[in-house]
Simulated scan of single mutants.
Amino acid sequence: MKQPSSNLFTVGIVASWYSSNIGVLLLNKYLLSNYGFKYPIFLTMCHMTACSLLSYVAIAWLKLVPMQTIRSRVQFFKISALSLIFCVSVVLGNVSLRFLPVSFNQAIGATTPFFTAVFAYLMTFKREAWLTYLTLLPVVTGVVIASGGEPSFHLFGFIMCIAATAARALKSVVQSILLSSEGEKLNSMNLLLYMAPIAVVFLLPATLIMERNVVGITLALARDDFRIIWYLLFNSALAYFVNLTNFLVTKHTSALTLQVLGNAKGAVAVVVSILIFRNPVSVTGMLGYTLTVIGVILYSEAKKRAKAV
């Protein structure tokens, strides 16, 4: 794939990344909470099915990136383990959106660096500089403050969101351990190509057991309001687009730019969600979230400086 150097192209990719990330988050919230489609596992399975099909189209047909093959049974089992953790994180995140506003969901999600540092230490005994750990204090403190000042606080939703955030962090740590050798490294597009179908295999029995007759219920809903089908199709396609644009942003910008954009994305999502859903927010909650974002920025800066030494 050619690498256009135009600034306009880069701006377009970043705008697409923001739009798809925030769009899928808001649409998930709308479907699971406002619309009343209370089937987060089935919704996640729709996402993974779309990612399976569109990943194959993008790599095998459009050749956006060269196809990488799975080289061994061991590598396949490693990818399967990653896929299971990924499934758990997405399902728990979708469950939390049934009970929590997007703004609070994003505040909790910003604590990912804290869990990443914890899992990295527990699993690899990798220690960061003391200053890096110090920057995690405002990250956690901010969420504690935001929780205390959140008008729509829901304990079960909070636990699900914390668990989803921890699972996301665990996936990134496990991925760096399992696929660290040169022969096993896969770019994110190829990793999704293999992870998504495995995720569908995990999610199908979970959907059949825990969300019985969801297909029949969805079809019955569609007879009354056909828009539900379009919502699900668009939402699923958008879930793949999140991964595609994330890959393109990573490819066409620096790691530092990606960190800065990622930190800002959460804040943008909070503002947009409050404007759309008009969920009540408190000054205490916003101060807590702001403190968390500042902590994440300081953490990124501390890690960058530690690497430079």
Rank of each mutant, 00 (worst) to 15 (best):
Q259G: 12
R223D: 13
G266K: 02
L204W: 10
I209E: 13
Y39R: 13
N235E: 10
A267Y: 09
D224I: 12
L62C: 13
I108Q: 03
A163I: 11
R223L: 12
G12I: 04
L82D: 00
S55L: 08
L221R: 12
E184D: 14
L32N: 06
I294A: 09
V173N: 04
L219F: 14
V57W: 15
G12P: 00
V143K: 00
T207L: 12
S152T: 12
G12H: 01
I22G: 01
G148V: 07
M1P: 13
I108M: 09
P138H: 01
A81L: 13
S72E: 07
I85E: 09
L32K: 04
P197N: 12
T69N: 12
F153N: 03
V242D: 01
I85K: 07
F86A: 06
V140M: 05
F104S: 03
G262K: 06
Y194M: 11
T165C: 04
I70T: 08
F241W: 11
T165Q: 01
R305E: 12
N105V: 10
R227N: 13
G288Q: 00
S52R: 05
C161D: 11
Q175I: 01
G149Y: 03
M210Q: 14
E301T: 12
N263T: 06
M123K: 10
I209T: 14
L192W: 08
V91S: 05
S254Y: 09
Q106I: 07
R278M: 10
P205I: 06
S152I: 01
F114Y: 05
A120W: 07
V249R: 07
I145D: 05
S16A: 14
F99V: 02
S52V: 04
I159E: 00
T253K: 07
S254R: 08
K126I: 00
L53W: 11
R305Y: 08
L203D: 02
A58D: 14
L31F: 03
T141I: 14
S72H: 04
A58M: 14
A222F: 10
A264Q: 04
F156V: 13
S172P: 05
G262L: 05
I59M: 06
L191V: 00
Y30N: 10
V144N: 05
P113G: 05
V215N: 15
S33W: 00
A302C: 11
E128K: 09
L193F: 15
P280N: 04
N263L: 09
V173F: 13
P101M: 05
F247G: 03
L191T: 00
L233H: 14
V293H: 01
Y56V: 11
V293P: 00
F86G: 03
G109M: 02
Y289S: 03
L43G: 01
W130M: 13
G109Y: 01
A302Y: 09
H154P: 06
T284S: 09
L170Y: 07
L193K: 10
L82S: 01
